[in-house]
Design a protein around this nucleic acid. Sequence first.
DNA 1: GCTTGACCTGAAGTCAGGTTCAGGTGTTAT
DNA 2: ATAACACCTGAACCTGACTTCAGGTCAAGC
Lengths: 145, 145
Amino acid sequence: MYTIGQVSEMFGLPVSTLRYYDKEGLFPSMRRQSGIRQFGEAEMEALRVIECLKASGLEIKEIKKFMAWCVEGPSTFAQRKALFETRKAAVEAEMRRLQKTLDMLKFKCWYYETAIRDGSEDRLKERIPDDLPAEIKKLYDNTHA
Amino acid sequence: MYTIGQVSEMFGLPVSTLRYYDKEGLFPSMRRQSGIRQFGEAEMEALRVIECLKASGLEIKEIKKFMAWCVEGPSTFAQRKALFETRKAAVEAEMRRLQKTLDMLKFKCWYYETAIRDGSEDRLKERIPDDLPAEIKKLYDNTHA
DNA sequence: GCTTGACCTGAAGTCAGGTTCAGGTGTTAT
DNA sequence: ATAACACCTGAACCTGACTTCAGGTCAAGC
């Protein structure tokens, strides 16, 4: 069993954040010893899952639901699995979005490299330059479709 | 030249958002016709860049700086390029983070699939199961390091 | 001439996810 | 016994990115 301060250290999260999570119901089965929170293995695992679900873009409210399901037992396995499947799809979509963003950024990097070499944007502004490298053209097409 | 309503349609952004962007200085060279905003080609391009930089996680304040550089002319090419390089690195980092999240989510999907088949978590909770598939083991190792 | 609709403004409100604050308790070290 | 800590609480505050609101202008159609 750990105190809030120890857990704060271990996870690199401010104490205030851990208390906030608790207030929001993210540790539904946490024990108290005369008022003081006792973080057990269940809470540590909860925190690992919280980090994962947060990283996947899930809201605190939804994470709370998940934690409640964990307390409810095996009858909620299917819901829990569905949640992770949904998150998986969301993260995959986000990665595709980021890939397009990345292509655009790469294009812009090339653009300013070229502008610096030319000393002006004029040639670039007018039209796609004749000497646009094939790889850059691909980035351009991906993002300016 | 387009009105704010037309641009709203074209970009799928609420009129209120466009006005907010303007207030935040994201269209430093926008013209007005007796009070009414006139969106020209510069503003359309600004919006495309805004979408890209926002998608890369940049704050509005920073986007405003970039737009000011664009007005300043060729002397700021290097800063603009540096900004895009920094964003590129940030997005790449974010994608690596998401990849780890995704591995964790895949592991959790497998976990609950197995729990549903077993009808209980008991076997899973104890230890890494003997029959943990190699592919899943990799996901597990990636995320539980 | 009056309503409708698209535009304008500044100020206030909203939401998530925390953080900070003021005041209180309980255990340990001097 | 008193100070120093780590813990506790509820309430207020903060930030970013918008949205909503109240009130006003102006051109076009009936």
